[in-house]
């Protein structure tokens, strides 16, 4: 079903007038695809969706959930984790506390991967972790840390590629961090990891730092790809503001800081390091 550009424009305007959500700087093509999917799933026109949103606040929230893309994996892109090991971990070891922000954490698989990773590096105890997302329902899922086996088992080899890299060393079993029950279709993150994460609603489009702290390490992977270039640059500015000097930002494998703010970071692979004030 074809949706007119005017309809999408109207949808965005209505949303901005009814709620705090502003989609005007979302990347046009992927946003259009979200709209097409919503229209198909609801089996009605976008005009119908707009009408319903006006009268029904919980339907509005449901549409926001459907707009946001919730894809996260255990140890996505092992190569990036090995870079983090090399570039970031040694510096984090020098700190007394590590403030970690996982922006756009979705259902949390990558966030828990990071906590496992921190634990293997002896850093879990001193790490304070915040996971944020625009979608409150997905944050509840993240806090539970229960995942469907059938959707996640294919990423388990990534665990080995990141944590079991030295052949002479005794293999770290999955069971150290997860209870896996294939018959129940369940992967459960162990409570000692669940207890280490705090989850908060945060909208990258409009919210600044709502955490009353700065961060040593921000992870935001495959989230900003849904925004246009201007908004991406604004958010990179916001991340920079909220990093401690020498702090780290890690983004997705096919993402890059392209605006002028890139001059205020040192780039090593997918790891960006905030330069100190005097360069």
């Amino acid at each position: 079903m074809d949706i007119h550009d005017e309809e999408i424009k109207e949808f965005i305007e209505i949303f901005a007038s009814l709620s705090t959500y502003n989609f005007s700087d979302y990347s046009e093509k992927s946003f259009r695809r979200r709209m097409e999917k919503i229209v198909n799933d609801n089996n009605c026109s976008l005009t119908d969706i707009i009408k319903k949103v006006k009268n029904n606040a919980s339907f509005l929230e449901k549409i926001v959930r459907d707009i946001t893309v919730n894809t996260t994996e255990l140890f996505r892109d092992p190569k990036v984790w090995l870079e983090i090991q090399k570039e970031i971990i040694p510096k984090l070891k020098e700190l007394n506390t590590i403030n970690l922000w996982h922006a756009g954490c979705s259902s949390g698989q990558e966030l828990y991967s990071m906590l496992m990773f921190m634990n293997e590096n002896g850093l879990l105890e001193k790490t304070k972790t915040i996971g944020t997302d625009i979608n409150t329902e997905i944050l509840e899922e993240a806090a539970k840390g229960n995942y469907k086996y059938r959707f996640n088992f294919e990423y388990l080899p990534n665990f080995d590629q990141v944590l079991n890299v030295i052949p002479e060393k005794e293999k770290i079993p999955y069971s150290k961090y997860m209870d896996i029950d294939q018959s129940k279709d369940l992967i459960k993150i162990k409570p000692f990891l669940l207890n280490k994460a705090e989850f908060l609603k945060h909208d990258l489009v409009k919210d600044k730092n709502i955490f009353s702290r700065k961060f040593d390490f921000i992870i935001c992977r495959n989230v900003l790809i849904y925004f246009n270039n201007n908004l991406q640059n604004k958010i990179f500015d916001m991340f920079w503001e909220n990093l401690n000097e020498g702090g780290f930002l890690v983004i997705g494998l096919h993402e890059s800081i392209m605006g002028p703010i890139s001059a205020k970071f040192i780039k090593k692979g997918q790891c960006y390091i905030k330069k100190s004030a005097n360069g």
Binding site: S27, E28, K29, S30, R33, R34, V69, T71, N222, I225, Y226, N229, H254
Partner: peptide
């Protein structure tokens, strides 16, 4: 995706 502003867009939808 090919974007209307002459850039390339990626997504993991």
């Amino acid at each position: 995706y090919i974007l209307q502003n002459g850039r390339i867009g990626l997504s993991i939808e």
